[in-house]
Design a protein around this nucleic acid. Structure first.
Lengths: 260, 260
DNA sequence: GACATTAACTTGTATAGACAACCTAACCTA
DNA sequence: TAGGTTAGGTTGTCTATACAAGTTAATGTC
């Protein structure tokens, strides 16, 4: 015997709108129906409509702009975490203007666990840099990095907003990079993320931690990059075998209709 | 000249309540003031109070339970990058006792977008399976999959709770898997996730979408797996920052250049 | 033509009220 | 005592309304 679980109106509306978006009823950047229109269509109150819209916003399908309207943004920037495509290259592929801002830059004693991960001796200082990455002037990524001070020193005073750190490293010290490790987590937006990435409190974000060595085996960098998951799409084409990829985007998510 | 931007009431209340929680006014699992009490304290409407509470829930500070009340659940974000786990064999490397529960299993006509992505003809049925996977009896992953019915038929009645689907496929039909695509997102826990994964509303989770082909090129499976990010670390050990391709000048120099 | 004003939209916030669903504890009854 | 009922609390959902804040396009004026 199946229990008849009542599904809220706002959730049904959410599902229906999601299906419409997935079915391609709206194109990227299309104007979505306004609250008032949806109120008439579904014959519910505005609060209920907004509840449904909120879910779609949280999933990254819609964006609201006060005074202008609600817009469809289902297409995400794709990035393959295995192939470390550069940020500017990634932006260029999506016709977005890349830019960066240095939030913090200092030489200090890192926390103990950072020293440990980077195999630094306890008395060694490290270079800490926080950068904010933009695509078309929209904040996409916070990069929080610790660098090996000895290796980083030669490029410390270079222009890091407009130059590649790895490029500078190679040009000035002839050092190349070697192995790297990374892991991915989902986190909730904290205080700094709210401010820098311009998201709502509690927005789920992707956290990618990387530990990068030089080709000599020295630990060069430990970074924690926080990505706006609603704007950047992490995709891989590998697994057992890697042939030429068909490139089917997987931009949607199963709805409850698909599940029950 | 800075425009004096008005801060919403619900946000001020949110900040004040957050400060109280951070200051330790409430202990873990303490009962939080009810909507009605907060309405009296702040002299606002219930909707406004709930807006503030919602933010605290999304941040993971509070949990609401219908009929019982609102509770404080301070949650730590733990960083443990020393444990780096492989992509597929998470369970074994974690040294956890693996188990699974079939939530749903049916043969039916899949939604249109699933048919499309799996290259199924519209009249073709698919096997839909929802599995909940445990490690040491704790729910870790929801696997929601659609399988090609023709390919899946031979193993439909096998014991899917205690066997690997891929292993069964190979044993019974000698079919090997080919290429796969996958992408990773961060999402907020929805209704089914709350129930099955036993997490609090708004908990950030990892969503991994996969499209898997057989070696023959047939589309075998589309799945969306939801991981408890607080219990599972997703990691790749080595990245092709690759040293072996140093001789190839153009493509790899570009990527390294743009990375920072 | 250039520019300010206005009207008519949009989303954002806030209020007040209602009922449903759920939980707990006190109470009543067998 | 044991068990069922009820009253009163909680959160969940939904409605209806109102005004603020921001955008856009048409209008009117100089």
């Amino acid at each position: 015997m199946q229990i008849d679980q009542p599904v809220p109106k706002y959730y049904k509306i959410y599902e229906e709108l999601l299906n419409q978006i997935i079915d391609g009823k709206y194109k990227e950047n299309d104007l979505f129906p306004s609250d008032t229109e949806l109120v008439k269509i579904y014959n519910v109150s505005r609060g209920t409509v907004r509840e449904a819209i909120k879910l779609l916003i949280q999933q990254g399908y819609l964006v609201r702009e006060q005074g202008k309207g609600t817009f469809v943004t289902y297409k995400k920037i794709r990035q393959d975490p295995d192939k470390l495509i550069g940020f500017t290259e990634l932006m260029r592929q999506h016709d977005l203007k890349p830019s960066a801002r240095i939030i913090e830059k200092e030489v200090s004693y890192p926390p103990a666990h950072i020293s440990h991960i980077m195999h630094l001796e306890p008395h060694k200082k490290a270079v800490r840099i926080v950068r904010l990455r933009f695509g078309d002037d929209q904040p996409l990524i916070i990069e929080r990095s610790f660098f090996n001070h000895d290796l980083f020193k030669p490029i410390l005073d270079e222009d890091l907003e407009n130059n590649s750190i790895f490029d500078l490293l190679y040009e000035l010290t002839n050092t190349k990079l070697g192995k790297a490790q990374q892991c991915i987590e989902a986190i909730s937006a904290g205080r700094q993320e709210l401010q820098l990435l311009e998201v709502e409190p509690g927005t789920p974000l992707l956290l990618i931690k990387r530990l990068i060595q030089t080709k000599n085996g020295d630990y060069f960098q430990y970074s924690e990059d926080v990505y706006r998951s609603d704007r950047i799409h992490f995709a891989t084409d590998t697994l057992p075998y890697n042939t030429e990829h068909d490139d089917i985007p997987l931009p949607f998510t199963l709805t409850e209709q698909d599940l029950f």
